[in-house]
Design a protein around this nucleic acid. Structure first.
Lengths: 340, 340
DNA sequence: TTGAAAGCGCTACCAA
DNA sequence: TTGGTAGCGCTTTCAA
């Protein structure tokens, strides 16, 4: 008989006790003689028994699962290097707590809402990991209304009843701008990401502050974070009269697309144009010139978020986490501007 | 009372029937008077009731969930553009059948095996989607032994008791090689991906066949599919005496990294070096020069795989699927070789 | 410290 | 065509 079919009854019988005691023991509850406890634990191990989360959940009203709903338009779906590592980080936490990750990818807002509703109604998950926070994000009230839990990556502008994981990008962005200024750049442009997204908006704001502090009024072009629009924005910027000597991109895929455009125009990088990203991806090390950017720690976000959410769900204890601040990673794509 | 807490009993009571009839109706089983059926359906809708999959599963021994276990070494984890779209494709199928995707990311072989074992032992999933097939893949016997189901992306060399989704790359690779040959290339190199992976191996083999058919003996360098090793391989190739005029990379991220190296050496692309990928990614359109490659349809793989696996799990009907063959996408990174 | 029994929400079997 | 009842594998009273 495969371990998969061993039940609590088999263990109880083999250990010569009642189911209740097996249950108490399993859940590390007091009131079981330590000798009995040992025996139960031993026979459970011998029989290879592990409780069935589905059956447990029927009593405890838990799913022992966390949900991640990703809204991705078909066009931008391929470009996000963040998630694999993020999920790996989540996984390390879930695995050791007997939980599991339920992943859903939806194309639009309507499907997203339905996904949350179904997952809750079907009791598929005990809470949600909220990524890609929007400036006006209705997922928090939605989840609240549904009576479920969540943890968000980034601080929602309207505040949140749920735990929040944050990471300070301000100092990193300041450093990045100063790095460019020190190299001698005065005409610095920013290709901002989707500003309906909170981190896109915040980065742009901080960029403008940092630029202002250096006495610079930067050009800002807004995009949707896709390489397409990154390329478009770059073309537009390079055609302006006083074209920028440096461009700061809202993410690395756009920066790479921007490099493509610059190369295509025959610009000598980085002499004729300095380029930076803002969220260190792996591939950024291998383009030419290798990309100056801010570092990132997707797995760190993952473990922090999963830990916080599980604490909330299991112990009712909310708790925010502040990740180590983002730091500047200087590589080869930034240099002093050549001519004037 | 929120719909989440409505049970089959509430529906039965409200409709003035027994639970049994509600259950039969819900599962579209015969033996319910159509008038009764209508009434039950209506009150279920009014009450916003939807059966609890966990409770159902306790009786039916199903999880109403499919599993995807991704083994990703920390180093290569970020670079794979395939999965977001693949999962989106899977999702469309699962959503309309009331199923869900359980995703696990593991760092190594041992963790992978544990993941499969746990998922089955805990009855978390009814079957697995098998991606990144290895030439010697022990997941199929493993899952077999565990008594679970699977569907594989690509045909396992040892055969498989499970459905197989295939896509023909042979003609595409032939076209790609002929495209280069027609442009005038004779020294064509191949930076092959991990040849323990089935598609890596098969592509290399086909590449060599196609080259041989054109009377060419190509240089082949083997890597692990990472941009690092793609870059390394490129450096090595460019330093050889008779350096290649064209390089065919096993995947797009390596091709992009290869471009980086070539740019760094000051090569004029594509005149001095033609470059191609083999698995059309989105970002490949936006590098410079834009990447010639084979097309890909991750979402198509996803829907096909999910459909096949669900049919197997639910109806016991195995059935293979052949996706439309890969086609050559000529963009700007290939051109006639310049000098000799 | 232990065991019996009820119940979580559903399916499935057997009678009626 | 219907309803009653016994599980599915676990947790949780409540008594003993």
């Amino acid at each position: 008989m495969s371990p998969a079919n061993v039940t609590i009854n088999d263990v109880a019988r083999a250990a010569g006790v009642s189911k209740s005691l097996v249950s108490l023991t399993l859940n590390a509850r007091p009131g079981v003689a330590s000798e009995t406890r040992e025996r139960i634990l031993r026979t459970a191990r011998e029989l290879g028994w592990t409780p069935h989360p589905g059956a447990r959940g029927l009593s405890t009203r838990r799913a022992y699962a966390l949900g991640l709903v990703l809204r991705r338009e078909p066009r931008t779906i391929e470009v996000d290097p963040f998630f694999a590592s993020f999920i790996a980080g989540v996984e390390t936490v879930l695995a050791e707590r007997g939980n599991v990750l339920v992943l859903t990818v939806v194309p639009d807002r309507a499907a997203e809402e339905r996904a949350y509703e179904r997952l809750v109604a079907d009791k598929r998950v005990d809470g949600f990991l909220l990524t890609d926070l929007l400036a006006a994000d209705d997922r928090i009230p939605l989840i609240s209304r549904l009576g479920s839990y969540a943890v968000s990556l980034g601080e929602p502008p309207g505040g949140s009843p749920f735990p929040v994981i944050t990471r300070d990008y301000d100092a990193g962005i300041d450093d990045l701008v100063q790095h460019l200024v020190r190299l001698g750049h005065r005409r610095i442009a920013h290709v901002s990401g989707d500003e309906r997204m909170l981190h896109g908006l915040r980065r742009r704001e901080r960029f403008e502050l940092a630029a202002a502090a250096a006495g610079i009024t930067p050009v800002v072009v807004t995009t949707d974070f896709s390489p397409e629009q990154g390329a478009e924005a770059t073309k537009a910027l390079l055609e302006t009269e006083d074209r920028p000597t440096a461009i700061v991109y809202g993410n690395d895929p756009m920066a790479i697309a921007g490099m493509g455009v610059a190369h295509e125009r025959g610009l000598d990088l980085p002499a004729e144009l300095s380029i930076t990203g803002l969220d260190g991806s792996h591939i950024g090390s291998f383009v030419y010139p290798s990309l100056t950017t801010l570092d990132n720690d997707p797995a760190g976000w993952g473990t922090a978020a999963a830990t916080a959410l599980l604490r909330l769900v299991e112990d009712g204890e909310p708790g925010d986490v502040a990740l180590p601040p983002a730091r500047l990673v200087v590589r080869a794509s930034t240099a002093p501007p050549s001519a004037g």
